[in-house]
Design a protein around this nucleic acid. Structure first.
Length: 271
DNA sequence: CCGAAAATAT
DNA sequence: GATATTTTCG
C-alpha cells in the first residue's frame, strides 16, 4: 500500500563520528568543568563546535561515564599489580599534597582511582588560575611595558589555557565569570590590580621625574624622597606579583599534569 | 534540560 | 554479534 520504504529519507542522516581529537576536546571540557558539574549543555558550549548537537554530547557523555565506571573497576582490580607509572606517582603525590583535609584511613579510598581522580581534578583550582591570569594580564596591559619584569609576564602568558585546551578565549571568559563570582581569589586579584594601577599612575606622570632631576629645592627633594618610597613599594609589589605568578605557574603545571593523565588514561583503557 | 534505556546503524 | 550513535522517554 502506501507504506514508506525504509530508507527513502534516512540517507541524509549523518552519524557523528567521535574522533580521538574530538573526544580529547570533550574530555578536556568535562574536566575543566569538573566531572560532576559537567552537564551536556555546558560541555557543548565549552567545546564550541558548531557541528555538535546537544544530543551528540549527551550521548557521548553517557558512554563516557560508562567507560569510566568500567575503567575504574578494572583499575581497582589491578590495583595490587603495582604498575606505578610516572603518571600514577605524580597523581598520588598531588592527591596527598592537596587533599590533606580528606584524611581518610580507608583503604577503599585508594581503589576508587579513575572516578576519584576525576573528582579531585574537578575540585582543583583550574578556573581560579584562569581568572588570576586574565586579571593579571589585563593589569600588565593597562600599565604598558614600562615595568622591568615585563618579560616575566610575557613568559607566563605562554601558559594561557587557550593553547593547551584549544578552546576559544571568550568561552573561557564566560566560564570564569560564571563560576568565580564568590571566589576569594577574585577579591585578592582585584586588590592587587587596583594597587598596581594606583602605583603606576602615581609614578607614571612625567612631571615628577622632570622636576626631580632638574633642580634641588626642598620641595623637590621631598618629592624625590616620596618617589623613592613609591618606587620601593612598587618593587615590593612587583616582587609580590612575581611570587603569585610563580604560584600560578606551579598550579597550572599541576593542572596540565592532571589533564595529561586524564587524557592518557582515557586513551589507554586498561580493560 | 538531564540522564537512562531503547532503538538503530555500522 | 558487538559496538557506536541516535532517539525516546520519564
Amino acid at each position: 500500500m502506501m507504506n514508506k520504504k525504509k530508507d527513502e529519507k534516512k540517507k541524509k542522516v549523518v552519524r557523528l563520528s567521535w574522533s580521538q581529537e574530538l573526544h580529547d576536546k570533550f574530555v578536556v571540557a568535562v574536566n575543566l568543568l569538573g566531572f560532576e558539574k559537567a552537564t551536556p549543555k555546558r560541555i557543548l558550549e565549552l567545546m564550541n563546535d558548531g557541528k555538535l548537537t546537544l544530543e551528540n554530547v549527551s550521548s557521548h557523555l553517557q558512554k563516557y561515564k560508562l567507560h569510566l565506571k568500567k575503567q575504574s573497576s578494572c583499575v581497582a582490580k589491578a590495583n595490587q599489580q603495582v604498575s606505578v607509572s610516572a603518571f600514577d606517582r605524580q597523581f598520588h603525590n598531588c592527591q596527598i599534597a592537596s587533599a590533606s583535609h580528606h584524611s581518610d584511613n580507608n583503604a577503599q579510598n585508594l581503589n576508587d582511582s579513575a572516578n576519584d581522580q576525576l573528582q579531585f581534578q574537578s575540585a582543583s583550582t583550574d578556573l581560579d588560575c584562569e581568572v588570576i591570569f586574565s586579571t593579571l594580564n589585563d593589569t600588565t596591559n593597562q600599565q604598558g611595558h614600562s615595568m622591568s619584569t615585563n618579560s616575566t609576564f610575557n613568559e607566563d602568558q605562554d601558559f594561557n589555557f587557550g593553547d593547551f585546551l584549544q578552546l576559544e578565549d571568550n568561552k573561557i571568559m564566560e566560564l570564569t565569570d560564571e563560576n568565580l563570582v564568590e571566589s576569594h581569589q577574585v577579591y585578592d586579584t582585584n586588590q592587587l590590580k587596583s594597587r598596581n594601577s594606583c602605583i603606576a599612575s602615581s609614578v607614571g606622570s612625567p612631571e615628577d621625574l622632570g622636576a626631580a632631576s632638574s633642580s634641588s629645592c626642598n620641595r623637590c627633594s621631598q618629592q624625590s624622597a616620596e618617589i623613592a618610597k613609591l618606587r620601593q613599594e612598587m618593587a615590593a609589589t612587583r616582587e609580590e606579583s612575581r611570587q603569585m605568578m610563580e604560584l600560578v605557574r606551579g598550579m597550572i603545571a599541576k593542572q596540565n599534569m592532571f589533564m595529561q593523565a586524564v587524557l592518557y588514561r582515557s586513551s589507554h583503557p586498561m580493560c
